[in-house]
Nucleic acid binder design. Sequence first.
DNA 1: CGTGAATTTGATTTAGCTCAAGCGGGGTGG
DNA 2: CCACCCCGCTTGAGCTAAATCAAATTCACG
Lengths: 249, 249
Amino acid sequence: MGNAFTRKLSRFADFSDDEFAALESVSANPEHRARGGDLIRQGERPDAVQLLLDGWAFRYKVLKNGRRQILGYLLPGDICDVHITLLNEMDHSIGLLTDAEVVTIPAQQLQELMERHRRIELALWCSVLVDEAILREWLTNVGQRDSFGRVGHHLCELWHRMNSVGLVNENEQFDLPLTQEELGDSLGLTSVHVNRTLKRLREDGLIELTNRRLTVLDPMRLAEVTGFDSAYLHLGHDPTAAMLRTPGG
Amino acid sequence: MGNAFTRKLSRFADFSDDEFAALESVSANPEHRARGGDLIRQGERPDAVQLLLDGWAFRYKVLKNGRRQILGYLLPGDICDVHITLLNEMDHSIGLLTDAEVVTIPAQQLQELMERHRRIELALWCSVLVDEAILREWLTNVGQRDSFGRVGHHLCELWHRMNSVGLVNENEQFDLPLTQEELGDSLGLTSVHVNRTLKRLREDGLIELTNRRLTVLDPMRLAEVTGFDSAYLHLGHDPTAAMLRTPGG
DNA sequence: CGTGAATTTGATTTAGCTCAAGCGGGGTGG
DNA sequence: CCACCCCGCTTGAGCTAAATCAAATTCACG
C-alpha cells in the first residue's frame, strides 16, 4: 500500500484516508532519470520540488579548490527542499547516485497541500528536523572519530535508515550504491583510506562488502564498537498527534 | 526598537504592529543565567523553549570516548528548538558560553503564537532552515578544508553573523567569547593546533585576537583566502512575503 | 600577589594523504 | 565471441599535517 513517499511520511503521522489520497495524488506519475545527473544545482531558485520515489540521491557542495563534500543521502521517499521557497537560493546541489524515479511537484501545489492538511505540513517539517539531526551526527562523526569509527558509524547509520524503510533483508544485507570515492567525500577521507578502513572492518568480521552490496554481519557489535546510538534518527513514533487539537481521522 | 529576538526574526519577515507586539510580549522578562550551565541536555524532552536574549550559547554532543563536538552557536536573539515537540527527545545539549539573559516560553504558548500568526511561524521555520544551511557549511569546513582555511572560514562566518545583528563595530571588531579549546571542538582540531593556526592568521595580517576580542583586519581578503561565500547564511531578504496570500500589515 | 585557567611554544609521533602501479570485472565494439 | 578498455578497487612506499606530550608564560580574578 502506498509508495515510498507515503510510507516515509507515515513514520511521522497517522494520516486519514483523505490525507493519504492527497499524498498519493501528488506523488503519481514519476519520471525516469539517469544516474550522474543533478536534480538541482547550487545557486538555482526552482519553483518546483523533486520527490524521489526510487533510487538514491545525494546533497553536495563543490569548493573552489575542486574538493567535494557530500552532505547527506536521499533515499526512496525523500523529498528535496520542500521549503526552498523560504530561502532565496540553493546553497548546495543534489545529484543522482543511481537511476531514479522522480516526481516534480510545483511549489504552488505543495503549498496548497500543506495549507489544506496541517498534519501533512507537520510531517514534512518533521523530516526536515530529522535531516538536521543526521547532519549534526555527520559533523560529529567527521570532527571527532578516527577513520575506523567514522566509516563503521556511517555504515551503521545506513543500515538503520535502510532497515527503517524495509530495505534490509533477513541476512542483514542491502544495496549500497556508493563508490569508495563517494564514501570518502561523505566522511572527509580519501578513497584510498576508505579502502584500507573497509579492509579492517572486514578483517574484524564486522561487514562484508562486495559488488555494491553490504552485509552487516553483526549490527549490535558494529554499533557497540563505533559508538553508534540510533536515537538521533528519531525513528518510530508519531509526533504530530500531540500538536493537533482536531481528533485524527 | 525591539529586542534581539524581534530583530533577528525581522530578517525573515516584515511583521505587522500586531505581530511585533506579540513577539515582544512573549519575550519579556528574561532571567539571568550563569555561564557554564546547560540550557537543556541530551535525552531530555522539555515542555518549554528557551530564548536567548543576550549572551552566547552552543549546541554540543559528548561521545562515549569523552570527545566533544560543538555543533553550532546561538547568538542573541536565537531560540533553541522551537520544534522540539515534533521530535521525541533532544539528541544534543545546549550550554552557555557566557552569562546570559534567557526567556523560558512554554511550548503551549509558542504553539498558540504560531497558530495565530502564520508569518511568525514561517519566520521561525526560516531560522531553522538557516541553521541547517550553516550546519552543512560546518560539515564542509571540517571535512574538506585544512586547518588554515578552516579556522579562517569559521572566523569569517562569525564576523558575518555578528555583523548582521549589528555587533561588529566600525573597526571590524567584535567580542568572541570562545576559548581555543572551544574553537577546536567546533572545528575538529586540537586547541594546540588552533593556537598555531591563529598565529599564522595573525602573521599574515588577517586578524588580531586578544582578550576574547577579534579584529578582522581585512574581511574581503580573509573571505578570499578561505573560500568564504556568505550565500549560505541567507542574509537580507524577506522570504515569507511570497508565501502569504493575505496582504501584510 | 597568588592561583588556576588559558595561551604559547617546542619536540616527537602518527593517522591519514599523496603518488604510483597493478588488478578485476563488466560493458562495448570490432 | 573475444579483446579491449574504462572505472573502481587494491596495495605499496614515502610524506606531511595535525595530534600528542610536556613545559613555560601570560592573563583574569580574588
